[in-house]
Design a protein around this nucleic acid. Structure first.
Lengths: 145, 145
DNA sequence: CATTTTAATGCAATTATGTTGCAAATATAA
DNA sequence: TTATATTTGCAACATAATTGCATTAAAATG
């Protein structure tokens, strides 16, 4: 347990969630990574520490409260990343670009890149935008090709 | 069978695929819809006419040949739409925007809307872009809200 | 601090989803 | 019409996700 613990505990309490071991574990793992983390990876890392079902429910609860957000990769697998501070259950601000590296398969949240405005046909009302770019990330583009 | 049949038969032959009942059925269903069609929906409509496995394989073959393209919706479910004429096995041109209606859950391929160019951080190399907009489609935006 | 209340976990069972191998059937070529 | 190659459908298997419920743990209460 790092010194993040109390920060995470506050985060849980603030969202009306009890401060439990599996929840803190998930926050710990997600915060220690520079890219979104897949459900299968989380499952593997948690190992026998937590039941698969518990993990599903933890992730679902976090997503509902706006603590994490879900990105689907090209295969449709769910990946999770901790939301920036502006997020809440009421309003998600995850409309940044996600970058899916074809080589290392990490998913980066490019918080700094804004999705450009979009012209849609008459009648359509856009509520949210979800842009996934694929290609090579900064650390892979040097190595391969 | 509508009068599309011969057109679809040509399409199959052109792609080196045999002209079979389940394949023509899938093309018939997809072409009769104005939005992308989910795998579960196709399964339901085909009913006992075709085996689940056959459907998987038909869709896979079509995708490989560039006859249809796959879009994942927000739940990660696969949806399929017939490609515009420019597509082939060698080169897919499905980089248009997909619109996911929050009300009727249809997925529209907005062929006319181009994805704007994107500035990504140094080192990142973008190969493909995949933009999904959610909101209300033209026919729903009048009805609700 | 002991006790009550409420929420969360873990297990078992179930359901849904996707894959593989192979024999039978069907489409095309010869 | 026959031969060849592809495609289908079945069965079995594998994987992923969901539900109900008893047990456990956390916060609230007196």
């Amino acid at each position: 347990m790092g010194n993040n613990t109390s920060r995470f505990e506050k985060l849980l309490v603030k969202n009306g969630l009890k401060r439990t071991v599996p929840r803190l574990q998930v926050l710990e793992i997600l915060s220690g990574r520079d890219s979104a983390t897949s459900q299968p990876y989380l499952e593997q890392v948690m190992g026998k520490d937590a039941d698969r079902v518990t993990l599903y429910r933890v992730l679902q609860a976090f997503e509902e409260k706006g603590i994490i957000h879900k990105v689907l990769d090209q295969q449709g697998t769910a990946n999770y990343a901790i939301c920036s501070d502006g997020c809440s259950a009421h309003e998600h601000h995850d409309e940044h670009v996600h970058f899916n590296c074809d080589n290392c398969h990490k998913i980066y949240c490019l918080d700094t890149v804004k999705i450009p405005a979009l012209k849609v046909p008459a009648g359509f009302k856009v509520a949210h935008l979800n842009l996934i770019a694929t290609g090579l990330c900064a650390s892979c583009s040097g190595k391969v090709n």
